[in-house]
Structures are given as structure tokens and as C-alpha cells.
Design a protein around this nucleic acid. Structure first.
Lengths: 154, 154
DNA sequence: GCCATTCTGTCAATGCATTGACAGAGATCG
DNA sequence: CGATCTCTGTCAATGCATTGACAGAATGGC
């Protein structure tokens, strides 16, 4: 094996990012379609999923922490939270410890809907990961995490 | 090694898709930032990159083929093409073989800008892939391709 | 020639995502 | 107490992305 040329290195990276771009679009499109019955997008799915975690469910998360967790802007997150709050899936309550913060918490209705969404989500996962073994998926997640670190620094 | 439980399988998939979601957002944000000097987004970058390929550059691509290649909707692509056309980076010319089609082709200005963009793009690639070896990247691209097939079917 | 199909474009609605700027309320520190 | 910083929310602009619906022009089959 000889050293790859700069050109080959560039094209390899190009292929990688192009496929990432395609997968991201497909995730949004088909993920949202999978949750069509709930009128829920992948972004809302991510927000609810974050709030439904066992260690979070009871007390909720501050907006700041949710921003950091999802890595989206405050203005963007605010709009998504507004939509979910309007539907009564979550509520924003003042933090007793710090009056500036608001804790975002799933309502009972939100938890019920999240529970109901598990079946179509599992089906979506199964169909999407059809060509990937369990080991592939673990490796995949590791590579994504390394890429995330690099993208964060870039 | 025992068989993984359904719960573990679900959580592995969950982690995978969440990281994909994060990487996609970071790609858009930081990729666009890398091309800030050109006022070009990652989406426009993808379009120009498709049209700049050697086998395409001379004759251009039809809108239909570009849609299939990028896997985006006609209405979305149309707006992106409008912006690039306004900046005189590309042109839409009638296909001589089929009057319904229009061939989208880079202008000289578009090609010049694409050439100038190569350096910042290479720098972005290098920084983003800092934690990934060449072998990692090849493996990564393969996994993304398998996921794309699954997502397409889902 | 006529009809159906294809290719493209547009209009409208909705939602995601960024940035910059401004504001108010609460916390913190001197 | 007063200045500063933090957390949140909002307004505005821009761009990406989807869907559904309608329209016009060109092609192809019969």
C-alpha cells in the first residue's frame, strides 16, 4: 500500500460528507414520516426524547442545558418548545433554585405520547438499520462521536 | 457474550441516530461558516460540487438528475438554483435533445469560485476528520451508505 | 392529431436552523 | 446598594426542507 495522494484523501472526505448530508436529509424526511400519526418531527422527537430520560423526567431540564444537549440555538429551541407547549406535551416551570432559569418538563400527556411513539420509532430503527449488524452500529456510533468532536473544533 | 436485549438494541440505535442528528447540524453550521467568505451554504456547496464533477462540468445536469443525485425536492432545489443563478454562478439552458428539460451548468464564474473554495473546504475536512484515520473514514463512508439504503426503504 | 405522461416552475403552508440585536428579570459580587 | 453577568424570550432576516396543488410546455404512444 502506497501513501494516498492529497487528491485521494480529499475525495474520500468528500464522499464521507456527501453521504452524511444525504443521510441527514433522509433521517429528517423519513423519521418525520414515521411519526406522521403523531404530527411530530424528528426535532421534536429529539426534544421529547431528551426530556423523557429517566434521570430527567421528574425534574426536567433548564433551557440552557437542553440547548447544550441538543446543540441548537436558543431561538430555534424556543420555537420548538412553543409548539410542544401549545400541544400540552410539555411545560416550562420556574426553577426554584434560580429564578432566571426555567425547567422544561414533560406533562403527563407528553409522557403518554412518548410511550405511544416507541413502537413506530422501534420500527423505524429496525427498517433503517436493516443493512447494519449490531457491531456495525456500535462502530458507527463511535465514528460519529469522533466526527462530532472534530466538527466542534472546526 | 449473551444476546443483547431489545432494550439494549433500541438504545444502541437511539444513540446512533442522535449522534447523526448532532453531526448533521454541526456540518451545516460549521460547514457554512467555513465558506463564510463566499457567502455559500453547505447545500449550495453540494449543488456546485455536483455540477463541478469532471463528467458533468461540460454539459451540466438536468434538474431531474440533480434532484435524484442530491435527493432533495424540486421545490427546494429550485430555490437554491435561483440563488446561485442570481449570483451568476450557474445557468439553466434548454436541453437540445429534450425541450422539457433544462441543463444546469456552472458558469465560468461558478467554476472560478469553486476552485477558490477548494482550500477552505480542504481545511474544513482536515479539521473535522482530525480524530479519524483514513481507514476510519472509508469504513465510515461504507456504514453511511448502508444506512442510506435502509433509510431509503424505511 | 389527440391524449397521456414527463419535466420544470411556481404558489402556499409549515417547520427547522442560523445569526444579530434588544430587553427584562434574577443572581452575584464588590 | 449598584454594577455586572446570566438566563430566557422575542423580533427580524435569511436559508434549507418538506408536502400538496396547479400550470405550461414538450414528448411519446396510439
Amino acid at each position: 500500500m502506497s501513501e494516498p495522494t492529497d487528491q485521494a484523501t480529499f475525495e474520500r472526505a468528500n464522499r464521507l460528507f456527501f453521504r452524511l448530508y444525504q443521510c441527514a436529509n433522509l433521517l429528517h424526511k423519513n423519521g418525520t414520516r414515521a411519526l406522521d400519526a403523531f404530527g411530530t418531527t424528528t426535532q421534536q422527537w429529539a426534544v421529547i426524547g431528551a426530556l423523557a430520560r429517566p434521570q430527567v423526567r421528574a425534574e426536567g431540564m433548564t433551557v440552557k442545558d437542553l440547548m447544550a444537549y441538543l446543540m441548537v440555538s436558543r431561538q430555534n429551541l424556543s420555537a420548538v418548545l412553543d409548539r410542544l407547549e401549545t400541544r400540552d406535551w410539555l411545560e416550562r416551570v420556574r426553577d426554584v433554585a434560580d429564578g432566571r432559569s426555567r425547567r422544561v418538563r414533560l406533562t403527563e400527556s407528553g409522557i403518554a405520547n412518548w410511550t405511544a411513539m416507541q413502537a413506530p420509532i422501534a420500527a423505524f430503527y429496525a427498517a433503517s438499520l436493516n443493512h447494519l449488524t449490531g457491531a456495525d452500529q456500535s462502530e458507527f456510533a463511535t465514528l460519529l462521536e469522533r466526527l462530532r468532536k472534530g466538527l466542534d473544533a472546526a
